[in-house]
Amino acid sequence: MPEFFTSIGTLLDGSFLQAGALWALRTIPGFPPIIQTVHILGIAIVMGTVVMLDLRILGLAVPSQKISEMTKRVMPWLWWALASNFISGSFFLLGRPNRYFNNPIFGWKLSFLIPAILLTLFFHLMSKQQDGYWESNSKRLWTARGIALVSLGLWIMVAMAGRWIAYVEYIYYPA
């Protein structure tokens, strides 16, 4: 793991942020599974919005929905879900910062998540420029398909990596 990355963990370890997160996780009854469920519900919204949109653009799902209309309709749900997941995730991140910032799978998760967000943001912003931007000519439609394919892969890997954070030793310390 790069040093700048692990040093974030060192910085957060022992801070008041960690104290607050640990207090919530340890004191509120059922808080860990509840907050994890909120996090997974956020992933469900990622699945129902951007993943479905990607599948639509690739011609695999919801054929009656128009790309531009669907983008406009589902994107707000996605951004709210991501904001919610940022908060729900940070309880665990701040609670045990070194566990995450020394975990290569967490590094993988971020290296999927950041491009996934940027790509989706780019797609959303371009579609705001003009109604039906991605469907206006075949060059743009093919670009949209390329973006959708990459985006689909990235979002799925974000969720997969998230689950594997707890199993890091399965990959890095094979039995």
């Binding site: 997974i40 699945m47 129902g48 993943v51 479905m52 689950r163």
Partner: peptide, 13 residues
């Protein structure tokens, strides 16, 4: 987890 999220994500809509 991935497929459960897809179940709920699609039913949610």
């Amino acid at each position: 987890v991935l497929t459960a999220a897809l179940v709920v994500g699609s039913i949610l809509m």
